[in-house]
Design a protein around this nucleic acid. Sequence first.
RNA 1: CGGGGAUUGGCGCAAUUGGCUAGCGCGCACGCUUCGGGUGCGUGAGGCUGGGGGUUCGAAUCCCCCAUCCCCGACCA
Length: 473
Amino acid sequence: MAKSQLKDFNADLSEWFNDVVLKAELADYAPVKGCMIIRPYGYALWEGIQSFLDKLIKEKGVKNAYFPLFIPIHYLQKEKEHIKGFSPQLAIVTIGGGEELTEKLAVRPTSETIMYGMYKKWTSSWRELPILINQWCNVVRWEKRTYLFLRTSEFLWQEGHCAHLTSKENMDMVLWALDAYEKTYNDLLAMYGIKGVKSDAEKFAGAGSTFSLECLMPNGKALQSATSHDLSQNFSKSFDWTVQDKNKAKVYPYQNSWGLSTRSIGGLIMAHGDENGLKLPPLIAPIQVVIVPIPGHATALKLAQTLNINLKKKFRVNLDTTDGETAGFKFNKWELKGVPLRLEIGDKDVSENRVTLCRRDTGEKITLPLLDLDKKIKELLNTIQKSLFAQHKKFTDDHTFTVDSYDEFKKIMATTRGFIKAFWCENPDCENEIKKDTKATTRCLPLGSKEEEGKCIHCGGVSHHRWLFALSY
RNA sequence: CGGGGAUUGGCGCAAUUGGCUAGCGCGCACGCUUCGGGUGCGUGAGGCUGGGGGUUCGAAUCCCCCAUCCCCGACCA
């Protein structure tokens, strides 16, 4: 009997990924190239991420707002590196209401420019800083090569944009955002990641420096999972935005921007998936407990209905009474969708005053008395959440290699892949050569890396840090 | 944007060298049956063969153009 109709998880992760996204009804291809439709079950994941992160953002005192979808081209052009980086990816509106526009409008690829134009208008004194604004929105980047969730032409995200009087305050905010992302990944998505600073070649167009959280996927590729940028005074200078400080001097505010997108859902899917489909951490799972009464068992159905009502008060519960599906069919269906716990109830269970509980992460089946069932479920959900994180962390640790020879570096990239910690002289030419040779790019310099004396893995030149390398998504 | 593969009911596929009414499995609808790991049986619905143009007595099949998807590159917060 064919257990699974899914593509093989281990053979080809990207085929499995596409398959599971479609079959679990997370998303579907749109009629527009490179775009996707996020279906209700997938959107529920995004809503879960939103509410978790939004709470952190608000606790920090950052307020939500909304800026327009369209950005006048000359705004984007104000910061030179910014427009250089983004112009190949822009979608541009040239006609409105049937008439050629006098100034073309870019569909926002990110909102720095349109937001900062307003910040300038709103402020003239140091007393009006900091500005702490975030927006949840869509952006468009005309990508040549797209994947569901991981890289689509249009995607959803939040972008926080703050401005501060001092460089220190600004950097505190940059690092706060990075920590908030780490917390979201660790605590909500049960994913481990490494925080660090990007190399010049990899940083955001227009940034002074870029920080990111890098997560390792089961195929040994790194996913840049969220970013936080120290924009320094680059944009305030480009916009000629100054405020007067206490000494009546005109100063350029320091700025930062930070974002987390629907790409995170792609990471979530891969990080925990297996040959049976999704495996959702309980905190993010749209359905935490699915109740499957064994079809045809009358007393079981009654108990299932009662439990559904009771458990709904504490958990996200779904009662599956779909007609015409066998028990086995339902089991497989909900495993594909990654529901953490399945409550199986048959007449046998009812007569013995118990239920059968099955864990999605381990496949383990447990029989439990009805008494204190909710307590036990809570405990189990907690355990699963922790265990999934521990597993992803272990996977990452097991696939993180500290390497001192280029041959070894190449060998890892040609076989298991993963994170490689190696000395690099910080010369972009070396970085580029390494990429050409091995496909690996620098992912980041992990925060807290200690300064050492070392030799660049490529040229042998003086190096002070071990950088994190990997094949990137 | 370059290289490769693909596009036929919802999904997965088939259809000799161009030739009968485009088939099959799954799914779907209805009925019965079954139901503790993808349940059997019966009946039925569902197709301008991705779009456009050409060649031909005749095109899913040959030619041209276009679109989309997948894989590998280049590019890429």
